[in-house]
């Protein structure tokens, strides 16, 4: 699969590492799918499916627990060192981030139910437009971070970290737009809060994607960059660039 998991004298160790690696991708795929479906329910005005999405979050939680057990077993059996240790820690953290992505997705599904499963008046589609664009953006970030993890691709990971800055800007301007809606029509304030919470959930998902990208940088370079500025990260990256 990649040089992070292969080449151990004990072949079984390789297999266990690869299993965990695939488990992360599986959990990530599930989280992405959940996100897509949750946003879709909003567009389709389909609270029934939204309930299904919420229910399906349990699967994600189960996988999270399964992954935790696997980490413990692996640490007991193999006492991983150096990059194996970093890989294990990265996987463990990525899995809990992905599990939280699932929780955020639930909030978006909750939004569908709130808006369309009540006898309140429907909001204008314009309000929801920002949700859609941001969901797309975040979904791309998430898949990019998973890709970076899978391929140990630092440049892609850095791109995700950079995108998170954009996402912050996007989130702020979306909130500003929402407030103009409130000023235009005070009755829509209930919806506005719901939508704001949805945006907030999407922003958090983006944050988790950025965390995962940060773990990838740590995994490859062994530098923890999650709390570094972008410039510092790029400086680190330069150190590890073979072409420099």
């Amino acid at each position: 699969m990649n040089e992070m998991t292969e080449g151990h004298t004990v072949k079984r160790f390789d297999e266990e590492m690869q299993f965990l690696h695939r488990l992360v991708l599986e959990i990530g795929g599930l989280a992405q799918d959940q996100l897509k479906r949750a946003v879709q329910t909003l567009n389709d005005k389909d609270p029934a499916t939204a309930r299904e999405v919420i229910k399906r979050d349990q699967e994600l939680n189960d996988l999270d627990i399964q992954a935790d057990e696997e980490f413990i077993n692996l640490i007991i059996k193999r006492q991983p060192m150096a990059k194996d240790l970093r890989e294990i820690i990265t996987i463990s953290k990525a899995v809990s981030d992905l599990e939280r992505v699932g929780d955020e997705v639930r909030k978006i599904a909750q939004l569908t139910i709130h808006i369309y499963d009540t006898d309140r008046s429907l909001p204008t589609l314009q309000i929801l437009r920002d949700i859609n664009t941001m969901a797309n953006f975040v979904s791309n970030m998430l898949s990019a971070s998973l890709m970076a993890f899978d391929k140990l691709d630092i440049s892609r990971a850095i791109k995700v970290i950079r995108q998170d800055v954009e996402l912050e800007e996007e989130y702020k301007s979306a909130l500003r737009r929402l407030s103009t809606f409130v000023m235009e029509d005070a009755r829509s304030v209930g919806h506005m809060i719901d939508v704001a919470l949805g945006l907030r959930a999407l922003e958090r998902i983006g944050g988790h994607a950025k965390n995962i990208a940060g773990y990838v940088v740590f995994l490859v370079t062994s530098k923890d960059v999650r709390h570094d500025s972008l410039d510092a990260i790029e400086a680190t990256l330069k150190l590890h660039d073979p072409r420099s």
Partner: peptide, 10 residues
């Protein structure tokens, strides 16, 4: 596979 990114040139 980006093996080279892992280690410095030495």
């Amino acid at each position: 596979m980006q093996t080279n990114t892992l280690y410095n040139s030495s």
